[in-house]
Amino acid sequence: MKIIYVLIPLSLMLLGLAVWAFFWAVKNDQFEDLDTPALDILDDDETEDSDTNREKRE
């Protein structure tokens, strides 16, 4: 059972990592728009177009 003394602090580190990741996501507006990203994936026949868009922007 000694292993729990290693594993549980390890899980705490993972917890910290998860909290950090979520905070990062909140800060970067990942939760601001939950509607449109779902539609982007349906948009397969437009990929060529959006690629050219990206080039245009850069």
């Binding site: 601001e32 728009d33 509607d35 948009d43």
Partner: peptide
């Protein structure tokens, strides 16, 4: 009205040069 509006606006404005971000809050 709905997510398709956001999609349409994003696509349509994306065709204009110089437009780098369009995010519509439905």
């Amino acid at each position: 009205h709905c997510a398709a509006c956001a999609w349409l606006v994003h696509r349509y404005l994306g065709q204009y040069p110089g437009v780098s971000e369009t995010r519509l809050d439905v």
